[in-house]
Design a protein around this nucleic acid. Structure first.
Length: 274
DNA sequence: ATGGTAGTCGAACTA
């Protein structure tokens, strides 16, 4: 009997490339959400899970709990704010924290790693606070540095997935009320330009590739009964290079966790690869 | 309703 994590046996198909389920989940505190996230992992069985807004220093991350489920974890955390991680059933290699051109002591908003030959990014783009604010300028600069990081370190000709909370709704279909949001935070032309800059590296929005219809959201404000009224935005994405897109078999947003008591304000995005 | 709720940290900040 070999000591192999359960998931690997499930993912490997003899004579075929690895079948992989990749997920991205802004958990809004991994400590507040620990049981909800672990329960979701047990049910959805992702092979690779990108986490955002873990809001915890690395020593306090529930690493052992993930290990018990068969996942290794690479993390880049800080106290109280931000924090990203990648949990995976496979071996996690070549971990890289931050972006090319980051200022010293930058917020922990990006971690990259290689899992079974697949390059994975978990990204938490700054919210931006309000259009034109210093934080908004930093949001645009972050997206530019992400593009620069991809240019300098990765290739659109190789299999790569960039997962995360981008805090930008890509087009009208991603906003419950596009006319009310036009020009506002999350739906501003400057944000769209910056997001397009990232995608122009050679990335495709996998969920949108499989679901062209409007009205699928990944985030709902905690306030004003936004979830009950389905007043949401789609701001969480899995972007993949063309070589990886050709192996993708489907994608979905799992609203289940958003219905629970004390949920994250985001729902996980899931991508399946043959 | 320039409000509303949630998380961190123990007042105010971020989202």
């Amino acid at each position: 009997m070999r000591a192999v994590p359960q998931g690997l046996a499930r993912s490997r198909r003899e004579g075929y490339p690895l079948a992989v389920r990749i997920a991205s989940f802004n958990v809004n505190s991994i400590r507040a959400r620990e049981q909800a996230v672990l329960d979701w992992v047990r049910g959805a069985q992702p092979d690779i899970l990108c986490l955002q807004e873990t809001k915890v220093e690395d020593d306090d991350f529930p690493t052992d709990e993930f290990l018990r489920l068969g996942y290794a974890v690479a993390m880049a955390g800080q106290p109280a704010y931000n924090g990203v991680a990648i949990a995976a059933r496979g071996k996690i290699q070549d971990v890289c924290v931050g972006l090319v051109g980051d200022p010293p002591n930058a917020d922990r908003r990006c971690i990259a790693a290689t899992v079974d030959g697949l390059r994975v990014f978990s990204v938490y783009v700054p919210n931006g606070k309000s259009v034109g604010s210093p934080s908004f300028v930093e949001k645009l600069a972050f997206l530019e540095r992400l593009r620069r990081t991809l240019d300098e370190r990765e290739s659109p000709d190789r299999e790569l997935v960039v997962c995360g909370d981008f805090n930008v709704a890509a087009d009208e279909r991603d906003v419950y009320d596009p006319e009310a949001y036009r020009g506002q935070l999350h739906f501003h032309p400057d944000e769209h330009r910056a997001l397009r800059g990232v995608l122009d590296f050679g990335l495709v929005d996998v969920f949108r590739h499989f679901h062209p219809e409007a009205g699928a959201f990944s985030w709902w404000d905690y306030r004003a009964l936004a979830f009950a009224k389905n007043q949401g935005l789609r701001i969480d994405y899995a972007f993949v290079t063309r070589p990886l897109l050709s192996r993708c078999t489907g994608a979905f947003i799992d609203v289940g966790p958003r219905r629970l008591e004390k949920p994250s304000d985001h729902a996980p995005v899931v991508v399946d690869v043959a």
